[in-house]
């Protein structure tokens, strides 16, 4: 049985928030991490900057690159990132909700590819991207987490997902790291999550 996959989305303030989550993750996290952050096309050194926060290596995803436990792969600027058959798939299809990369596009592909083994994490942001994708992860029995809007630099995005009923757990940034570690150490807590 293949293990879990963690998908993280963030927008306004998302880079800093993701940095703090990465700082609380161990070097031997048992699952791949895929990320969609709304970023400027010129932000080409984001991966390098994020990699300094913790032990996990961070890189921009390449098309058809395989995932491995402990990788942190970012949607490149101006591309959508999807996941299929344990690989990254890129697309330059139109922006979704004005965003490319789109968090919904990533989350929805992860929901379909990994079902109850998917973990979706929605961080701070000023848009409503991510809610639909998180709902899909939840409907497929995966684990869904939103950053506590009270602690978010911009609460709109996590709040939208919570109000849409797509969030299983609302956590502060430090707690998100712990939750990911324990989720990745067990095979299928998602069944219980989906049954709620």
């Amino acid at each position: 049985m293949v293990g879990r996959v963690v998908a993280i989305g963030g927008s306004w303030g998302g880079g800093a928030a993701l940095g703090r989550v990465l700082a609380s993750l161990p070097g031997d996290l048992g699952a791949p991490v895929v990320v969609a952050l709304h970023r400027y096309p010129g932000a080409s050194r984001l991966a390098e900057q994020l990699g300094r926060h913790g032990p996990l290596a961070v890189a921009d995803a390449e098309d058809k690159q395989e995932l491995w436990p402990g990788c942190v792969l970012l949607a490149p600027p101006d591309y959508h990132l999807l996941v299929e058959g344990g690989m990254c798939v890129l697309s330059i299809d139109e922006p979704v909700r004005y965003s490319r990369p789109s968090i919904d596009v990533l989350f929805e592909s992860v929901a379909d590819a990994y079902r109850s083994r998917a973990v979706g994490v929605l961080l701070t942001g000023a848009s409503e991207d991510g809610s639909a994708g998180l709902a899909r992860i939840q409907a497929r029995g995966g684990l869904t987490i939103a950053q506590d809007p009270a602690s978010a630099e911009c609460p709109i995005m996590p709040r939208a997902a919570i109000e849409a009923g797509a969030v299983g757990r609302v956590l502060g940034l430090e707690e998100i790291g712990e939750a990911l570690v324990s989720a990745c150490a067990t095979e299928d807590v998602g069944v219980e999550e989906g049954a709620r």
Partner: peptide
């Protein structure tokens, strides 16, 4: 074709 992106189209 890659199904994940094809599917969205």
């Amino acid at each position: 074709y890659a199904y994940s992106s094809l599917k969205r189209r």
